[in-house]
């Protein structure tokens, strides 16, 4: 710090510089986080119906006790966990596969790369809309199946296939996310490691297992953390493609909270579910961040 003492202590601004830089942003963030969090907890502990009540009435833990026996909540929780984990696992495999395919020098490699990352940047609402057209009973996917001699599939009308459809749409959009992170990770691996493996006569699989994979682990953890975060709050695509149906087979937590809060107006109950979702997500992410030491990846530490 002593270096900076040479600076003339001129303006008032500079004396409080530290605070002037930090406070506005932090202040706005704290206001945007603290007050709403307090309000959310207050709502969760109260009985508040938008349609006929003007003020929340405190009822203690009533909402939480009700949630314990709410089969729709447990269904939505189960669907969220199942669909998110399957989707993220597939995205991981697809993304890694594509990154390995495109890591070599190829003609047109750069163009292929920029084409492959387009899905991830499309608004999720548009992706949902698009897959609604594609999964239609008389849409292109069923047409293709018929031409191949397979029977049509009722993609959105059958509980199991509806889940598959949502997972497929999510995989389509987000495997490119895994792809570019893995590609960046692969390109950071120094060539001499491969050269020495070649000299030692290592097979392709052994090169991958003992050189590529260990070097990829950091990117893999980051990619997984961010995808898990986002997959657990999936909303847009489900809302557009199936709206949670048929018979709640694709209902996810975000959609359930949205529906109970803003469609049925039971905002108190929805807040209680939201609190549970927040605690659950925090716990999951906290474990991941701790295990992967994400905070330590910052160079200014």
């Amino acid at each position: 710090m002593s270096t900076y003492r040479v600076v003339p202590a001129g303006s008032v601004f500079d004396r409080f510089a530290k605070h002037i830089f930090i406070l506005p942003g932090l202040g706005v963030l704290v206001a945007l986080v603290i007050y709403p969090t307090y309000y959310l907890i207050r709502l969760a502990l109260s009985n508040f119906d938008l349609t006929f009540m003007t003020k929340p009435v405190f009822i203690g833990l009533g909402n939480f006790i009700q949630i314990l026996s709410d089969t729709y909540f447990w269904g939505a929780l189960g669907n969220t966990l199942v669909m998110a984990s399957i989707a993220v696992a597939l995205e991981f495999v697809f993304g890694l596969g594509m990154a390995l395919l495109l890591n070599e020098d190829l003609r047109g490699g750069r163009i292929i790369k920029s084409l492959l990352i387009v899905p991830m940047m499309i608004p999720p609402v548009v992706v949902g809309l698009n897959f609604k057209l594609i999964f239609d009973q008389f849409g292109p996917l069923n047409d293709l199946l018929q031409r191949l001699g397979v029977s049509c599939v009722d993609w959105l009308g059958n509980p199991l296939m509806a889940k598959v459809s949502v997972i497929l749409a999510d995989v389509w959009q987000w495997s490119s996310f895994m792809f570019i992170i893995f590609l960046a990770g692969l390109q950071a691996i120094p060539q001499y490691l491969y050269d020495s493996a070649k000299v030692d006569g290592a097979s392709g699989w052994r090169t991958f297992r003992f050189i590529t994979w260990p070097m990829l682990v950091p990117s893999a953890t980051v990619a997984l953390t961010f995808r898990v975060m986002d997959a657990l709050k999936i909303f847009d695509v489900v809302y557009m493609v199936t709206s949670g149906g048929p018979s709640f087979s694709t209902e996810v937590l975000s959609l359930y909270i949205y529906r109970t809060g803003f469609r049925f107006g039971t905002l108190g109950y929805a807040s209680a579910v939201a609190v549970i979702m927040l605690i659950l997500l925090t716990a999951i992410i906290e474990v991941i961040i701790k295990e992967t030491r994400l905070g330590k990846r910052l160079e200014w530490e």
């Binding site: 007050y35 709403p36 959310l40 709050k233 909303f235 937590l253 975000s254 809060g261 609190v275 925090t282």
Partner: peptide
């Protein structure tokens, strides 16, 4: 970054 939008939306 992790907070679900639906949790923000209610308050």
């Amino acid at each position: 970054r992790m907070i679900p939008p639906v949790v923000v939306a209610i308050p």
